[in-house]
Nucleic acid binder design. Structure first.
Lengths: 224, 224
DNA sequence: CGTAGAGTTGATTGCGTTCAACTTCAGTGG
DNA sequence: CCACTGAAGTTGAACGCAATCAACTCTACG
């Protein structure tokens, strides 16, 4: 299932504007499509670095094991995101990536990528930019974890998720792709606390929440 | 003060083994030396991306402003560290870097770097690895912020600092390069809490602390 | 209808914050 | 040499946010 041009699936993809494969430096690389199910792993921490991935459809989470058997979620991946950037420093992936819902993923073999990299300085520049952006993005997310209190963090998180889901709008609400446990883990709070905070925000009239469907009403920056 | 070869100062530098300039892909680039004082800024967030830096001697801290006037310290730089990696994604630096003590810093002009990058795929590979490593390093530091409780975080922090200071050993103890305020900020706790924790660790006999001079006694992994 | 997983609610505890006062230290000038 | 000053660090007391444990409800799915 290889292809030297942007693949057909892209034609109807709503995420092309922010997709690294479609409009980025990766568009010309040969790649395959894989369709993992919920619970599948693209790779696990410590595994040998064999491929890069780009998420076309669906969602995934990246976790770090931290030695102590506890797994900390460090990022949620959305369509357009590149996955596997953590593996360049070492010969192995430094985080685990698990699929959260049925997904379509472009897979770029490591050798393919490295050959292309040796020949294209544009690709190199693109990758360096991408890595730098990711460095900043993650930093920004997690620095707010200690600065802001839990409620503000949750608000910010929900706003971010809304943005990522913005391409599939259905009457002002959107669907979270992850469980409460995952959200709590990511935000660094207990599930019970998360539940209480959601209730609180609902009572304030700031959001409406039914299961994973969220509608944001009056979240402005003054409430942060 | 340019030079096309590893500069004289490197001859007596104790950090060459982990220095990106000395033994890395940057060694052949023309560069200058700057010697900023405590309190100086290499650059501030939002400023135009003009140069990359490598810390030879001294120490620095990187902060993120996060909008809310609060500044969060996201990394302490030690000799051998590369500074400015946050600027590749944008045209501007995404964090501020302030010098903590009199330092010597290699400065590599942006144009110089980009020209070299276009011609050397080895440099590109090196930079990608470096960025990937940094991504993982920062992630690991800050994921422990929410996983572990304050005391464990402090222990881990002190151990890390000891490693960075390991090249200047003086009878088992070492000198912290940053203030309590900075440490507290970095660890995400209040200064008072930090003070109490230091006292606690001292009473346990795990460390000895006098001002910024720290001696680590019995810190094993069981206490984490 | 029954089960398992996901999510919620309540009661209690504790870690870390906050505010305020105090101490220590380094630098400066009389 | 000592007194003054301001920054850095410490200590104490009270409060509060979030964790923990436990029981309960809801939902999806067979």
């Amino acid at each position: 299932m290889n292809s030297d041009k942007p693949i057909d699936i892209c034609k109807h993809c709503p995420y092309t504007h922010s997709c690294k494969v479609h409009n980025g430096v990766l568009s010309k690389l040969p790649k395959t499509i894989v369709c993992p199910e919920k619970g599948d792993h693209l790779f696990k921490s410590e595994e040998a670095f064999t491929a890069l991935y780009v998420l076309c459809q669906g969602s995934a989470k990246a976790t770090l094991s931290d030695g102590t058997s506890m797994e900390k979620i460090v990022q949620f991946y959305h369509p357009g995101d590149m996955i596997g950037l953590c593996a360049f420093g070492n010969e192995s992936y430094q985080e685990s990536v698990e699929i959260l819902s049925y997904s379509r993923v472009f897979k770029i073999e490591r050798a393919t990528f490295e050959n292309a990299l040796a020949e294209s300085s544009a690709l190199a520049n693109g990758m360096i930019s991408l890595l730098s952006e990711n460095l900043v993005r993650r930093q920004r997310n997690h620095s707010s974890n200690t600065l802001l209190e839990a409620e503000s963090r949750l608000i910010r998180f929900l706003q971010d998720q809304q943005v990522w889901s913005a391409s599939t709008p259905s009457k002002g609400s959107f669907e979270l792709c992850m469980s409460r446990v995952d959200i709590a883990n990511y935000l660094g709070i207990a599930v019970e606390t998360l539940s209480r905070l959601m209730k609180k925000l609902t009572q304030k009239g700031l959001i409406e929440a039914q299961n994973r469907r969220i509608a944001i009403r009056n979240l402005d920056f003054s409430s942060m």
